[in-house]
Amino acid sequence: MRGHLPPIFANAAGMLPLLSLEVVARHLMSNAMAARPSFAARLGEYSGRTFAVDPVDCPFVFVLTPQDGGTHLSVVREAVGFDARIAAPLVVLLGMIDGTYDGDALFFSRDLSIEGDTEAVLALRNAIENADLDLSTVLGFPQAMQGPVNRAARQVFMRVRRLLDAPEDSGPNGVANGVNLS
């Protein structure tokens, strides 16, 4: 399947305790929310909805409930009781967060699927788009280190995506922006 992690990685990830994944994911989420305090405001009335973000090539699902006072996040084997579910390979989901991919294009190409409250999914997608996140922000790096870290991360992610035959990069973080002019 295009963009899927090799089963060996998925199996290894499956052996990690969910609690450790959850601690790391919460820390990253907390960094992102601290850097983008207007995130919940952009979600508007959809703040408080529960989203299952499902990396389909991994044996776990992130369950998020963004709220004004902070986002609740848990990592589970199987999500139940969500308002909306967004499913795609892990590298594709990461590429949506950093603006490498356009959500509509992924939907058209069937690399991404959604179910449940379509309106809430759109609100979340648009809030993430406007958050304009990058790796150094999510990792909580100081301003001075962000440029070099982000440049290196783009190159690494691009190579990983190519290795996994993920959808082609585009957009502000993509490298294939050139038009062939002869």
Binding site: M96, G99, T100, Y101, D102, G103, D104, A105, R125, E129, D132, S170, G171, P172, N173, G174, N177, G178, V179, L181
Partner: peptide, 21 residues
Amino acid sequence: RQRGRAYISTVVRAFRKVIDA
């Protein structure tokens, strides 16, 4: 206007290059 930054960046750059070309 409902599309993401990836779309905007790619399409705008491409069309700007065409207009300049």
